[in-house]
C-alpha cells in the first residue's frame, strides 16, 4: 500500500519543527515513531501534505527522574520504557502495560508521546497516564503549555493539540511509598488492541485506606476514560472486597463501549467491571508489598 504523496521535512530543532507545523497548519502531521500514523497513511485514512519528522531532533529521548517527577521526552520509545529500571521499580502499572503494546518491533519505534497524541481510545498508554495523573507539555510556535492528561483527550483520534503544536514531554508524578499499580488487558491474541483494558494506581495511607486512586479505561468508549466516579468512591475508604466491587461497578457505569468485531458492548462493560476489581486488588497488594 502506497501512501498519498507528501513533502517530507526533517527539522533539527524543536523550534524549527513547531515553525513548520505552524506554517502548514492542518496540512501537516508530526512524525515520531510513526507506528500509528504510517499505517493510517498507507490505508489513506490520513493524507497529510506535509510530514514533519521529529526523529532527528537531538535531546528529546530523555527519561529522567527530577524531584518527584519522571520526565519522559517526546522521542522516548516504548522499548525504552519497557527496559527502564526506574519504570520497573516505581511504575508497575506502566511496566505491566508497556510490554502488552503491539510487538517488539513496534515498541522499538513507537513513542509514549505519539501514543497519546494519536488520541486512540484503543491505545494502552492513555489509560495508564490517566491513572497515574500525568501532565502533557505541549510545544507550539507561541511557546509551551502544560495540560493535565484528563483534559487532553477530546474525541476519537482528537486531542487538545491545536494545529502547529506537538507533545514535547510527559510529566509523570512518581508515586510515594505505599503505592502500587497494575494493568490488565483482554486481547484476542498477543499484540492486538485491547477488547478492553484497565489500569489502576493506588496509594494507601498509614491506616491502610486508599489515599489516592487513579483508574483509566482502554477501549471502553469513544475516548480514553478516567473512571472518576470509581476513584472518588474508593478514596478514603478501606480496600475491602465490597468496596473494590463497588468501584468496579462504578467504572463499568462510566464506560461507553460499542459493539464491534472484538466483542459486544455488554461483554465489554462486564469486563471493565471485572478488570477494575482485579487491577485494584493487585495494585493494593503491590502497595502493601512495599514496592511502589
Amino acid at each position: 500500500m502506497i501512501p498519498q504523496a507528501f513533502d517530507y521535512h526533517a527539522p533539527k530543532t524543536l523550534a524549527e519543527a513547531v515553525g513548520l507545523l505552524a506554517r502548514f497548519g492542518d496540512d501537516a502531521k508530526a512524525l515520531s515513531g510513526g507506528q500509528s500514523l504510517i499505517p493510517l497513511m498507507k490505508l489513506r485514512f490520513a493524507g497529510p501534505a506535509h510530514l514533519v519528522d521529529i526523529n532527528g531532533i537531538p535531546g528529546l529521548d530523555y527519561l529522567q527522574e527530577e524531584g518527584s517527577t519522571l520526565k519522559i521526552g517526546a522521542l522516548v520509545r516504548q522499548a525504552q520504557l519497557e527496559q527502564s529500571p526506574v519504570v520497573k521499580a516505581k511504575f508497575p502499572l506502566l511496566a505491566d502495560a508497556v510490554r502488552m503494546i503491539a510487538d517488539p518491533q513496534v515498541r522499538n519505534r513507537g513513542t509514549l508521546a505519539g501514543n497519546l497524541a494519536h488520541g486512540d481510545p484503543a491505545n494502552d498508554q492513555p489509560a495508564v497516564m490517566l491513572a497515574l495523573g500525568a501532565q502533557v507539555v505541549i510545544a507550539g510556535s507561541k511557546g509551551e503549555r502544560t495540560l493535565p492528561i484528563d483534559k487532553f483527550f477530546i474525541g476519537t483520534l482528537t486531542t487538545a493539540l491545536n494545529a502547529g503544536e506537538l507533545v514535547k514531554e510527559i510529566l509523570v508524578p512518581i508515586p510515594p511509598a505505599n503505592s502500587g499499580g497494575a494493568y490488565y488487558k483482554i486481547e484476542r491474541r498477543v499484540g492486538d488492541f485491547a477488547i478492553v483494558a484497565v489500569g489502576s494506581q493506588v496509594t494507601l495511607d498509614k491506616s491502610g485506606n486508599c489515599q489516592k486512586v487513579g483508574i483509566g479505561l482502554t477501549n471502553a468508549g469513544p475516548t480514553p476514560i478516567k473512571a472518576t466516579k470509581a476513584e472518588a468512591f474508593l478514596t478514603g475508604k478501606a480496600p475491602s472486597e465490597a468496596n473494590l466491587t463497588e468501584a468496579g461497578r462504578l467504572a463499568a457505569e462510566m464506560s461507553d463501549p460499542a459493539s464491534d468485531t472484538r466483542a459486544p458492548a455488554d461483554y465489554k462493560k462486564a469486563m471493565v467491571q471485572e478488570l477494575t476489581i482485579r487491577t485494584l486488588r493487585t495494585a493494593v497488594a503491590r502497595a502493601k508489598g512495599g514496592a511502589a
Partner: peptide
C-alpha cells in the same frame, strides 16, 4: 541494530 518493520518506516527516515 534494532528490529523494525520496514513496511512501517519511510525510506527517507533511514538517511
Amino acid at each position: 541494530g534494532q528490529a523494525v518493520k520496514s513496511c512501517t518506516l519511510f525510506a527517507v527516515q533511514a538517511e
